[in-house]
Simulated assay, not measured.
Amino acid sequence: MTITQKLQQLQSIFQAMDHALIAYSGGIDSTLVAKVAYDVLGTQALAVTAESPSLMLEDLEAAKSQAKFMGLNHRIVHTYEMDNPNYTSNPTNRCYFCKSELHDTLRPLAIAEGYPYVVDGLNADDLQDYRPGIQAAKERGVRSPLAEVGLSKLEVREMSKYLGLPWWDKPSQPCLSSRFPYGELITTEKLHRVGQCERYLRQLGIRNLRVRSDGETARIELPPSEIKDFVASVDLDALVLAFQEYGFIYVTLDLEGYKSGKLNRVLEKTGV
């Protein structure tokens, strides 16, 4: 099936909904959903972004600017997953509690304002990964149009480019809590220091990266093809000093490079 055919299927889904509230993080997936929803429904589509300590300020501002660019009906709400010890203790199903908080916030808003459907940006590839948050969304009746029409991550980017979205090649940017190994307590201060480190690297012009927190150690992950140039061109002494000022004691570079979902490898050993 072609991209234009899948786009027509997406449009048909929203035509049948009439009104829809979109869980809009500003990432490439939910942005595509919001774009198509708005193209079909106009102001009968509402994009809602959840603000919390696990969302970098730059990503919140990007969500706002993208929404303005597309002319979306856009709103910011606050979520309080950091008040839930089931979340902050960082169990293997942490994302379940995150999405529960998100949709327990969005659903009452949707009902109160006459939006019978809440939709998210889950794509077909996400269904093949370990994502406990999917169950939380399903329990609350959330629809996932991208997954329903079988759109892969690559196709999401292809369709975004087809629709003229300037950020079609934007790197994936999951919440900052995904930088912590399961079992490590998540605090607002730890989220902040990881965010500061990633901001430092972004300001060096690096787009696709992760700074993983492992106790007092920061582990930098970059695309494998960029590692040699990074070591050769970056002032490593200045970088280490900056990371230590942000609160880490040790700074390391992952020689394998960045791979999405790397922290889930431990689950394979434990049989989760």
Rank of each mutant, 00 (worst) to 15 (best):
G71Y: 14
N86K: 12
P53H: 08
H103R: 05
E155F: 02
V40C: 10
A34T: 01
L106V: 08
D120T: 04
G121A: 04
F69C: 07
Y80T: 12
G133N: 03
S152H: 01
Y117P: 00
V149M: 05
P91K: 04
L163D: 05
R157E: 11
A45N: 05
M70Y: 15
V142L: 10
E155I: 01
L72T: 08
T43G: 02
E158N: 03
L151Y: 06
Y162G: 00
K68Q: 15
T31Y: 05
G133H: 02
H78M: 14
Y38A: 04
M82C: 11
A62T: 14
V119D: 06
E148D: 09
S52V: 06
R94Y: 07
S65W: 13
N84C: 12
E158Y: 04
S100K: 10
W167E: 14
V118W: 11
Q128Y: 13
L165Q: 06
D169W: 08
A110I: 04
W168H: 11
W168G: 03
T49H: 10
L57D: 15
N90A: 08
A137G: 07
K35C: 14
R94I: 03
Y96N: 02
E148N: 01
P53L: 08
T105R: 06
V33A: 04
G164E: 13
G27F: 10
G164I: 07
A147V: 08
I111T: 13
Y130V: 02
Y87I: 06
S152G: 00
S100F: 11
R107L: 15
S30E: 11
